[in-house]
Design a protein around this nucleic acid. Structure first.
Lengths: 340, 340
DNA sequence: GGGCGGCTCTACAACGTTGTAGAATCAACG
DNA sequence: CGTTGATTCTACAACGTTGTAGAGCCGCCC
């Protein structure tokens, strides 16, 4: 038994193909009786519209792409899961596009091939350049997550990174820490990492603490291995830090490992904070203090805004939307002698 | 400037639309000179075929679905990343379908809507029932990962779960453990968990150890929280285990947390093993011994086999393919007094 | 009662692609 | 020299859908 077509439904209901199409698309001028008869035929045959044909005719596919550097990163995995959920609820289907950090030529070509299959994209340009994004079809709606790209006039959704970093640093200062390091600086990229660095510096400044260059550890990537290596380097310095603010949770877990291997205790000898609040923060040893963006709000805002761009309900200039965050304080920054 | 069509290329090259199509599809009977001229026009206009139209005409979209319970689970994230990579190399695009464990009616409908957009699926039925899978279009090629579903005559790719579990248990026995618990039994499901349980029992039997019912902890799901709760329960029993074999890494991390909170040491007081070897195993405290499936082999085999099913190169009955695995021994099962 | 406008439905064309059939050319063969 | 077959290309139709234009009907108003 082949998949039913509009014409099969039309034949069964005794109307024209177009009338069936009209029922499906909620065209108002269809008699109630006709509508019911057509609907019955649709249900009976289990008819589903052919998206390729519809897209060919209307120019829309109902497909949106989610471009992420790496799906396997827990934070992106959590975000991706939420976006898929929300999109599904709204009637969109998500196609996940893994950019692989450095977009190779082949991958860019692949994106091009898919471009006319996709109505719009949600992109997290952590490792992409502005040029990469701009290279996409200019008529193609894009909503950016996390990182603001100056060159791109696209919508942009993020938490207030400066404030979040400032609050985190203040938290460490309030615990008595004075040599606070960061892991995850990315001097060459002009994105999220710099905002977090700025918040860190503002907090130090407020507290009258002098910024120490050797306490700002760069990370070429935001993986476990990078946090591990950066922490080892920090521990090897003449005066190691008494607290480390990592710019994401994986860096923090890598750092935790390095501290453990050095025979030091967290939070006793060193306090550690992460960023993103992935689920594992609540289960690591010690549990990890982390900045928690409202991920569901990010997903909902992104999908809704993109949908409005695609349908043309929203035509103004690119918006900057700020979603809330909280600082989830856990054992890795417990005051001396305490466990929460 | 609108996206170029075949006819634009044809006009520029001074040939018919069909000749351009023939060049694109490597039809052999095209003069070398014509081919070059057409190719130049394609490059000049940056022509890309419209997939919707192609799909409408050929019945193929170049899209494959990857159905996973949850993208946010690290193991599935890693597998998804690899599959997307491999598929991209082979010219396929992956659409990730998050089933959400319990497939709601809405989600099943969504799958139905997409069904005619997709050439085939790779599915990991950890939380799906056989009926769920069977409900998919029977003409729709499916490759299953991990779990064998008796009712479905589909291709199936997995490691030898019984052997892997047996080896892991033997490893624990060889370290002198005698009260070895498992976390992750799923009596009602007939899938992977049961195979791992079988391997565990075989190893106990070989060593002359009596199976103890209270040491077999079920887990309703395979999440951190489930491992945490199960471990707490095991620790509350009259004679707690001296080793725990968790059926995935998240369960193991949850268990680690419970042990830490109880003030016990791993591996000193209790040894713990995981399963899946996600990247975090190398960075947790302590690092986690885990069964490591060859994930790249899984991804490559799955994509290639599915592609052969779609193109019709493979038409035989469903195959059972076993991919290799290793046991990665780390600190969580280090012999007393040792750190690896 | 003639005309107008709203409602309901239909026929047809078009979206961009590829399969089919066949036209045109050329070389080789009997 | 006519026929055959291989090569190269083209015209046309079709995939399933929806937009456009318009036909037919009804009720209402002047």
């Amino acid at each position: 038994m082949v998949t039913p077509r509009l014409k099969d439904v039309a034949a069964l209901a005794g109307v024209s193909v177009k009338t069936v199409s009209n029922v499906i698309n909620d065209y108002p001028f269809v008699r109630e009786e006709t509508r019911v008869r057509v609907q019955l035929a649709i249900d009976k045959l289990r008819y589903r519209p052919n998206l390729s044909a519809r897209r060919l005719r209307t120019g829309r596919s109902g497909l949106i792409a989610l471009s992420l550097p790496e799906i396997s990163t827990p934070y992106f995995g959590e975000i991706a899961g939420l976006i898929v959920d929300v999109a599904e609820q709204r009637g969109w289907t998500v196609l996940i596009d893994q950019t692989g950090g450095e977009r190779s030529h082949e991958q860019r070509t692949a994106a091009g091939i898919r471009a006319d299959l996709i109505d719009g994209s949600i992109a997290s340009p952590l490792s992409m350049t502005a040029a990469d994004i701009a290279a996409l079809d200019p008529h193609h709606p894009v909503v950016l997550l996390g990182e603001q790209l100056a060159m791109v006039a696209a919508d942009h959704i993020a938490i207030d990174n400066v404030r979040a970093a400032r609050e985190t640093t203040e938290h460490l200062i309030s615990l008595g820490c004075r040599r606070i390091a960061v892991i995850g600086a990315r001097p060459r990229h002009n994105g999220t990492a710099n905002l977090r660095l700025e918040g860190y510096r503002l907090a130090l400044d407020d507290a009258g603490l002098r910024p120490v260059r050797s306490l700002v550890a760069p990370a070429s990537d935001f993986h476990l291995a990078d946090g591990y290596a950066a922490m080892q380097a920090l521990l090897r310095t003449r005066r190691p830090p008494d607290a480390v603010f990592c710019f994401n949770d994986l860096l923090a877990f890598g750092a935790l490992r390095a501290v453990a291997e050095a025979g030091l205790a967290v939070p006793g000898d060193i306090k550690i904070c992460g960023f993103d609040d992935i689920e594992l923060c609540r289960y690591s040893s010690p549990t990890l203090t982390s900045v928690s963006p409202d991920k569901r709000a990010i997903a909902e805002t992104a999908v809704d805004l993109l949908a409005r761009r695609i349908t043309g309900a929203e035509t103004g200039p690119g918006q900057d939307i700020v979603v809330p965050h909280t600082l989830e304080v856990r054992d890795s920054t417990a005051p001396a002698g305490q466990r929460r």
